[in-house]
Amino acid sequence: MADETPLLVTREGPVVRATMNRPARRNALSTAMGEAWDRLLAELAEDRTARVLVIRGAAGHFCAGLDLTEAATGGSPEERLAQQTTRNRRVGARFGDIAALPQVVIAAIEGACHAGGLGFACAADIAFAAADARFAAPEVRRGLVPAQILPWLARRAGRTAATRLVLEAGVIDAAEAGRIGLLHQVLPDAAALEAQLAATIAAVLEGAPGALAETKGLLAALGPISPEGYAEAGAAAFARTFTSPEAAEGIAAFRAKRKPAWAG
């Protein structure tokens, strides 16, 4: 079952494919999925035979972000504050681990790519999407903050575009995501996405493995993803908002498929 294998990992020679596999939740990030990601990333960081990592989602969606139904459970306010600080800190570090891999990382996106899903897309070296893909950073509509995806959004699309995306918090289509720079290319359908993915993998494999890894190191040396101290401040901000009355109302409204009290 999907939740028993929340991250499907397959390998074809030097190409590793990681598929987020919780289709009933549009591949929302659960604790178990996060732990599976961490195991895979630790392995790939030491693997010099793997040369490409492809990230995608199962059943026509990429990733809907953090699973709020799971995250909304358990404990005293103090315990929840500590739990969410730790969880969000790890989410931010995970995106950094993806970007730091020696492999070339390609995101192939269909359907929903929301919230934390944007972090995966923007931490990848190259991002493609089918025309049916949809993108959103809806955190403020849930009473939350886009703490750990914000540096990645700003790096990929620029601060101005990221500002509008996280403050309006609406859904944009793949064409708009491509226009603002979240994507490298938009393909007309799933078949075209597969063809472009295959072509890019073939192109990457023409490069020398060591030279590609060194080039990624040089790109990282151009500057950090965020200022010193941001990751901890972001984790703390997420935890504060998550344990607030606004988040309680926002998550309840999300689960009930209604507007929160502050919306009109």
Rank of each mutant, 00 (worst) to 15 (best):
A123C: 04
L219A: 15
F95M: 11
A195P: 05
L8N: 01
I126H: 09
E46D: 11
L193T: 05
A247R: 03
D3Q: 11
A157D: 03
N21P: 03
D132L: 00
A24E: 10
L81W: 15
A154E: 12
R255C: 03
S226N: 03
R56L: 09
G223R: 10
M1D: 06
V16G: 02
R141S: 14
G65A: 13
D125I: 07
F135S: 00
A18M: 01
H114Y: 15
A129M: 12
L144Q: 15
E194P: 10
R164Y: 09
A121T: 00
A136Q: 11
C113G: 05
T31Y: 10
A59M: 12
A253W: 13
L7E: 02
L53G: 00
A261W: 06
R94V: 06
S226A: 15
E194W: 09
Y230H: 04
A191L: 13
V9T: 11
P151Q: 01
A235R: 01
L44P: 05
I172C: 15
A123K: 03
A42D: 12
I126R: 08
R11A: 06
A252L: 09
E78I: 02
V54Q: 05
P209E: 07
A253V: 08
W152D: 04
R142S: 13
T160C: 08
R48Q: 04
A64G: 11
A213G: 08
A124F: 00
D3F: 08
I106F: 07
A108I: 02
P77K: 06
E78W: 08
L41C: 03
D47V: 05
E110G: 04
A261S: 14
L212M: 13
D132N: 15
P260Y: 01
E194F: 08
G234W: 03
W152N: 07
A100L: 01
K257Q: 12
G217I: 14
T243H: 09
A190Q: 14
R90D: 05
R87Y: 15
